[in-house]
Structures are given as C-alpha cells and as structure tokens.
C-alpha cells in the first residue's frame, strides 16, 4: 500500500506541474465563463430589442442553450485532459528510464499500476469537477433551474473520459504515446461513436431490419460505448417547449437520445476493470 500511495502522490504532483493540463484547464474554464457571459449579453440585447426580427427568446431558452453548449465543452475538455493524462502518466516514466530506478525499488508492478491509475482518476475527476463547479456558478447568471442537468452530465463525462484515459494508458505502455492516442481515438471516438449512433437508431426503431438490428446490438455490447445522461433528451424536449412548440414534436429526437441504463453502467464498470487489468498486464510485461 505504501508503494501505491507514493506512486499516486508523486504522479499527481507531476501531473499538477504539466503545462499541457494547465492550459487545457485554463482554456476550458475561460471558455465556460466566456460562453455564459456571451450568451447573457446576447440575451440582454434581444431582451432590449424585442422587435428586432428574432424569434422570441426566453431566459429559460438561453439557459438551455448554455447547458447544451456546456455539455459539448465539458465532453471535449474532459477528453483532452484524459488524453493528456493517459499519454504521460506511465509513458514518460517508461520512456525516460525513470522506471528503471522505480522498479529496482521494493515496489510491485501491481502497486505501481494501481498508483498510476488512481492518480490519473483523481486528476481527471478534480479537473473536470472544477470545470463543472464553474459551469454551475455561471448558470446563476440565468437564474438557475437546470443545475442538476450539469451534475448528471458531469458524471457521464467523467465516466467516459476515464475509459479513454485507461485505454491510452494501456496502449502507451506498448507503443509511442502519440500513436497510442491516435489508436485510442479511432477505437473509442470513431468506431464506438458509430456503434453508439447505430444502436440509438435501433432503440428508436429507425432501423427495422431484424438481422441488422441483431448485428448492431451484438457489436454495441462488444465495444466500450459512452454513457449518456438523460439530459440530451430532456434538453431537446425543453428546447422545443421553450421555443413554443408542442412537446409531442420532440418525440423522435428525444427517443434517439436516450440516457444509459443499468446495463450500460454495468458494462462501463466491466470495461474499466478490463482496461485497468490491461494496464497492469502491460506494465508487468514491460522490461525496462
């Protein structure tokens, strides 16, 4: 346990000094403030000129726009930070030769792997968490009411980015960290992105062919797929309502954007354990 704690502690210290993560965090936090203030100013302009030829804009609608944009921003910055951590936390120790000194000490490869993973998880949760807290504070500009939407979205974002981080960590013990990031991107963001989209079409009966549905269903459960909060569907419904249309017309879109169920969450937990085990196996096999 001593070894795990020491590895985690000093990995966190190192991560806190990496400029790339600091830059991602600063750009993310400035972006969130900029989005909030920008939308608020726009809303004020619309409010002061109700006959300017725009559709009616309500405070609620603007806040929904902000929540929608924040979803994308948190997802993007969460991913960038996950790649930043995944590409450096273990790879630099192995690549620089630091691992030679570390592994000659009485620390098991298991303790080292667990320490690295814990540090990565902690760093990711703290950075994305801080961005989320900031987003919640910025929402006060709009009078509030949708704060819980951010919380649920943050949980989904952290869960998804943790998987990406573990994939990059595992791959970077086998190959160059940039190549590892590219492979992880193609695997997680492209292949599984397509699978998730197709699966949502199956769920909403947009694909009716039985064979295609079965194939997509199987493929969906073979790949790690991102967890989605119930917020996207709720946002679509609320935006349609705020825009003055009936809630019924949002049906198909909201159906496509269903939130993840217990099965997805269990699958996510399995994927996390699986990739953590791959990280350990890769570190254990690695000769330095």
């Amino acid at each position: 346990m001593n070894g795990t704690a020491a590895v985690a502690r000093y990995t966190l210290l190192e991560l806190s000094r990496r400029r790339v993560l600091l830059v991602f965090f600063l750009v993310g936090s400035l972006g969130i403030v900029g989005l909030g203030v920008g939308l608020r100013i726009l809303y004020s302009l619309f409010e002061s000129n109700p006959n300017g030829g725009f559709n009616p804009v309500t405070n609620q609608f603007v806040e929904l726009q902000f929540v929608s944009l924040i979803r994308s921003a948190l997802g993007t910055f969460g991913l960038l930070i996950a790649y930043g951590i995944g590409m450096t936390a273990i790879y630099h120790d192995l690549d620089s030769g630091a691992a030679t000194s570390i592994f000659s000490k009485p620390v098991s490869r298991f303790a080292f792997s667990v320490g690295k993973i814990l540090a990565g998880v902690a760093a990711l949760v703290v950075i994305v968490g801080l961005l989320a807290v900031e987003a919640r504070l910025v929402m006060l500009l709009f009078g509030g009411g949708y704060e819980d939407a951010i919380t649920e979205e943050v949980l989904a974002t952290v869960a998804n980015t943790l998987v990406v981080m573990l994939i990059v960590l595992a791959l970077s013990t086998w190959m160059n960290n940039i190549v590892a990031a590219v492979v992880a991107f193609v695997y997680y963001n492209v292949i599984t992105g397509v699978m998730t989209l197709l699966h949502s079409f199956v769920n909403s009966n947009l694909i009716e062919n039985g064979v295609a549905r079965a194939v997509i269903d199987v493929a969906y459960w073979l790949f790690p797929h991102p967890l989605t909060s119930s917020i996207p569907a709720a946002l679509v419904r609320a935006q349609v309502q705020a825009g003055g249309q009936s809630g019924q017309s949002s049906g198909p879109a909201a159906a496509v954007l269903q939130g993840s169920g217990p099965g997805d969450i269990a699958w996510w937990a399995f994927v996390m354990v699986f990739f953590a085990a791959v990280v350990y196996y890769s570190v254990r096999r690695r000769q330095v």
């Binding site: 000093y10 990995t11 190192e14 630099h92 620089s96 030769g97 030679t100 000194s101 000659s104």
Partner: peptide, 11 residues
C-alpha cells in the same frame, strides 16, 4: 541500483 544514464520523473 544506480542505472546507466539515470532519469527520473522530470517535473
């Protein structure tokens, strides 16, 4: 163990 060309976590 003092390795040849030792290196350490650089930050």
């Amino acid at each position: 163990f003092a390795p040849e060309d030792p290196d350490f976590p650089k930050f």
